[in-house]
Design a protein around this nucleic acid. Structure first.
Lengths: 336, 336
DNA sequence: CAATTTTGGGTTATCGATAACTCCAAAATA
DNA sequence: TATTTTGGAGTTATCGATAACCCAAAATTG
């Protein structure tokens, strides 16, 4: 690969002059500037960002860590983050933890050794604390996305999990349901806890008893076990509606119900958090609390860049809460 | 950030000794090795991969460029590529061109300046040739994914576009359809051309006249224009079936038909290339030619790594063609 | 026991770029 | 004409890590 030295030699100037032309710094006569630029083109020069980063002590690379690259919520978020990063002259390194702490840790090691300027971090759960402390130790700025981590102050962009859950469950209650199950993500994820709170609150306000048997914590990643609902279905007083704490859980639930020959919404109503991307475009079926995923990415990136470029007070932490939108579709219907 | 020099000083050895401990090279006594490791932990040392890359002349970073991060085909592919990269000790830089040559070019510039060791490249289309020539000029190894580029020899992993299309159209013909429309991607994408060929071939073999009026080249990205099908629907002899050249086109078509109150498959049958991710899990509706997306990623990564590590003859180019699977679901039905 | 290996580790140069400083000649000013 | 500016560069050190070379002390050998 050609370096500034190759160019310097061919253009009969010093390397420093080439560097000045590249960065538009210092004083360079129009003649030599032109000459250097010509030689740069001839030799197909591309600056080596490793070398540059080494001396500048910054990379202009940001990192986005999501927990599931196949989930439309995160891919849409990623697109927002990417657009926003590009606009600000940053590159984006995308990582995927698959809701797995070990993968997350690997990724953080990678981030540290790459010396990225900052990280947009969607934590796998509460135990992500270790990884985040690592980032703090090394003074890598980060912004949390979608999920909060106890004991950790930070800028963050969250959804209104509790309120969204409350509204979804309210909707089910208004349809006449009183036996409403909650299929939740793992309880070490903040959103799962909040969605449970919203669920419980809605029930209590409506005077419906909260039945532990109807609450099933699983995982936000796709549930492939077709028997997973059996404990619920075998109850003497089985649920007539299900609130799935995210889109993938809802898909798993639908598959399980289909395997049992139970029809939605005729026999059981379902509603979930997060919209389903093209699935909803293809067939607007699922009643959801849709989050503004693209905005999550854009705003998170904005907070991060402001933080990096020192435009904000490092002491104060900002917490953006984005509302979700209740989209009532066909997966929920009145109790017969 | 702590460097090997900080460690060297505190451990009372030279920087080189620290480097040797890190890389497990040279001869180090067990005592000093332990001591150095202890100091490394105390100081939270993480190697600076910029500095290392600079001297080693390789980054251990690979890049994956896809054309649509919200398309399940590509996200599944990405997961395959990522898993495979990680297994081989490489990091993955993910990029998204949005089917846009300008974004693609930006991304290639970024790749060049980051000096990645290799690229998995899903080209936006034939004009990606410029970008690929850039990579060649700078001797960055790459493997093409999903799409071929004329005039360019390279390792690649492709689907069987022609055969897959032929089988989908055959299926429609067997159902009795003779007026079958093709809604295609842009004609400067190899898969679009091949899918057209497969379509034409299937019709010809069945003795059905090929009607140019039924062939509509659009874009592989989501089609949002609800009027887009009007020219077809207003024909005196409108189509009774539609072959959509990819999943997003099919979604656009479905939306357009829904807006017109036309029901699928009762009034019009639809089949498309590429499965729809969770959309199909949620509601297995669309008849598709499903490609092994994860395998695209894994195999592409494998070819790339073999190429980088010089395990293959650089002269010969390998072309893997992965078959697709015809999944007959509910969007297609017999002509009445 | 002297000669030779081996062990364990240090020195120096280098990767490609930039910051900070220096330097000189021509132009501007006194 | 003498002196100061200033425009237009060049020199050197540096970022953090590793390759290549070097060297003393300890261990082995005949």
């Amino acid at each position: 690969m050609t370096t500034i030295y190759d160019i310097a030699k061919k253009a009969n100037v010093s390397a420093m002059t080439v560097s000045r032309v590249i960065n538009n710094t210092g004083r360079i006569s129009e003649a030599t500037r032109k000459n250097v630029k010509k030689v740069m083109e001839e030799l197909n020069y591309v600056p080596n960002s490793m070398a540059r980063s080494l001396v500048l002590q910054k990379t202009k690379i940001l990192s986005l860590l999501i927990t599931d690259i196949t989930n439309p919520f995160y891919t849409t978020l990623a697109r927002g983050a990417e657009d926003s990063a590009k606009q600000n002259g940053y590159k984006l390194l995308l990582g995927n933890s698959d809701e797995d702490y070990a993968k997350e840790k690997d990724y953080v090691d990678m981030i540290l050794s790459t010396r990225v300027d900052g990280v947009l971090f969607a934590p796998a759960g509460d135990h992500s604390l270790d990884q985040l402390r690592q980032l703090q130790t090394h003074q890598i700025p980060f912004v949390l996305l979608d999920r909060e981590v106890p004991e950790l102050a930070s800028d963050m962009v969250l959804g209104d999990s509790k309120e969204g859950a409350r509204r979804l469950v309210d909707h089910l209650i208004e349809l006449g349901h009183r036996r409403i199950a909650l299929i939740n993500g793992s309880m070490d994820v903040s959103t799962a806890r909040l969605r449970e709170q919203g669920y419980v609150e809605a029930l209590k306000l409506a005077g419906i008893p909260v039945d532990e048997e109807l609450m099933l914590p699983l995982s936000y990643r796709s549930v492939d076990d077709l028997q997973v609902l059996d404990p619920l279905l075998q109850l003497s007083d089985p649920p007539t509606a299900i609130f799935a704490a995210n889109n993938f859980i809802a898909v798993g639930v639908i598959k399980a119900l289909r395997a049992k020959g139970i029809s939605v919404p005729e026999e059981i109503s379902i509603a979930c958090f997060d919209d389903l991307g093209i699935a909803s475009e293809l067939h607007p079926f699922m009643t959801v609390a849709a989050q503004p995923a693209y905005q999550f990415g854009v705003l998170g990136m904005q907070l991060l860049i402001e933080k990096i470029e020192g435009k904000t007070d490092p002491q104060t932490h900002r917490k953006l809460i984005l509302p979700s939108e209740l989209l009532i579709r066909q997966s929920t219907s009145a109790l017969k």
